[in-house]
Design a protein around this nucleic acid. Structure first.
Lengths: 195, 195
DNA sequence: GTCTATACCAGGATAGAC
DNA sequence: GTCTATCCTGGTATAGAC
C-alpha cells in the first residue's frame, strides 16, 4: 500500500512550520523564542535544528512558500472575460485566498522587515510579481476605456491595501458571509476604478 | 526672557522618544534593544531609566500620543459641507497626517501586538474612536442618499486600509506630488462609496 | 543626570549520550 | 530523532560612584 503521509522526520518538520506560522503570526517573529516554538511542537529546543538550519531560514521558507503558492494559485485561477472580468476574478481570488489562510497573509505582511537583506529581496520580488498582475489588468482596462485609472501603479497599491485589510477583521461565522464580503468589496473596487 | 525649550532632563526624554520612534518603526519593537536605543540617543543604557519606567511604557506612550494627537487634529480640522464634503475632508486629512509622520503611523499599525493587554485596550479604544468618525460620515451619507454603502462598518474598514496604505510607499520628492496623491485617492474613495 | 559595572535571565545554537 | 546539558551572547533593569 502507498503511504499518504510522510515519514516521522518530515512530519516533525511540517509540525515545526505549522507551529512557527501560528506563533510568528500571533506574537511576531522577533518575540517568539526557539524554546517557545519547541514547546508548541512538543520537542526540546535542540531538536528543532535537526529540521531547520536556523530561525531566519524558517521565516524565509514560510514567506517564500506563501508567495509561491499565491502566484501558482492565481496562475491556475479561471479568469473572467475582458479586463473587468479579470479584475473581478483577481478581487475575489485575493479575498478568498487571504481568508483561507489569514495567518500566512498576516506573516507575509508583517514580517518582511525581519528578513535578511538577501532574503528580503527574494520575497519582495515575488510580491512585485503579484502586484504586477493587478497593474497589468488595470492598464489593459484603462487602454480599452473600460476603466478610469489615472495611475495604474497607484491604483493597484490602493486596491491591494484595501483587499488585504479584510483578513485583519473578518472572522468566519461573523455577521457577514464570505460571498457577501467578496461582493461588497468587488463593488467598491469596481466603482473605485471606474469600471 | 522666556525659554522656548524645556530643561536638560525633559530634553533627553524627548530625544529618547524620538530615537525610539525611529528605531521601533525601522526594526520593530521586539527587535530593538535598550542598548541600541541608548546608543542612538548617545547615552548609556542605564541612563534611559531616569526618563522612562521601562520599555513597554515607552511603546505605549508613543502610540498613545499618536492616537491622541490624531484625534485632536481631526477635531480641529475644518470640515466640508454635507456628508460628501466631510468625507473629502476626512480622506485628505488622513492622507496628509499620515504622510507627515509616516514613522508614527507605521508604529501604530505594526506594534499593537506588542502592547500588554491593558495597554492594548486603551489604544484600540482610541483607534475605534477614530474609525467611528468615518463610520458616522458614511452612515450620514447613506441616510441622506448621497452615498451607496451597503455596510458602513465594512466600508470604513476598507477605506481606512486603502488610505493608510499610502504611507507604505509614498516618498516625498517622488513621481507624484502630495496634492496629486490626495486627489487620486479622494476620487477612488468617492466613487467606491458611490458619492 | 550620567557613567561604569553588574545582576539576573533568556536568547540562539551546538555537543554528546541514548 | 530526540533529549539533556551547556556555550556564549545579549536582553532588561538596577546599584553606586561621580
Amino acid at each position: 500500500m502507498t503511504r499518504t503521509v510522510a515519514n516521522g522526520a518530515s512530519n516533525t518538520a511540517a509540525r515545526i512550520r505549522d507551529a512557527a506560522r501560528f506563533l510568528f503570526a500571533r506574537d511576531g517573529y522577533a518575540a517568539v523564542s526557539m524554546r517557545q516554538l519547541a514547546a508548541e511542537v512538543g520537542v526540546q529546543a535542540g531538536a528543532l535544528y535537526l529540521h531547520i538550519p536556523d530561525k531566519q531560514s524558517l521565516l524565509f521558507d514560510l514567506l517564500h512558500e506563501n508567495m509561491e503558492s499565491l502566484l501558482v494559485a492565481w496562475d491556475a485561477e479561471p479568469r473572467g472575460e475582458g479586463p473587468v472580468g479579470r479584475l473581478e476574478s483577481f478581487v475575489r481570488f485575493h479575498i478568498r485566498t487571504h481568508l483561507d489562510c489569514p495567518e500566512s497573509v498576516f506573516l507575509s505582511n508583517m514580517e518582511l522587515r525581519n528578513l535578511t537583506p538577501e532574503n528580503f529581496r527574494v520575497i519582495a520580488g515575488l510580491r512585485d510579481q503579484y502586484e504586477a498582475e493587478l497593474v497589468a489588468i488595470l492598464q489593459d482596462g484603462s487602454a480599452a476605456d473600460k476603466m478610469r485609472v489615472p495611475d495604474a501603479n497607484l491604483a493597484a497599491k490602493a486596491v491591494l491595501a484595501m483587499l488585504t485589510g479584510v483578513s485583519g477583521w473578518y472572522r468566519d461565522g461573523g455577521r457577514l458571509s464570505r460571498e457577501r464580503v467578496e461582493r461588497i468589496y468587488w463593488n467598491m473596487v469596481r466603482r473605485a476604478v471606474g469600471a
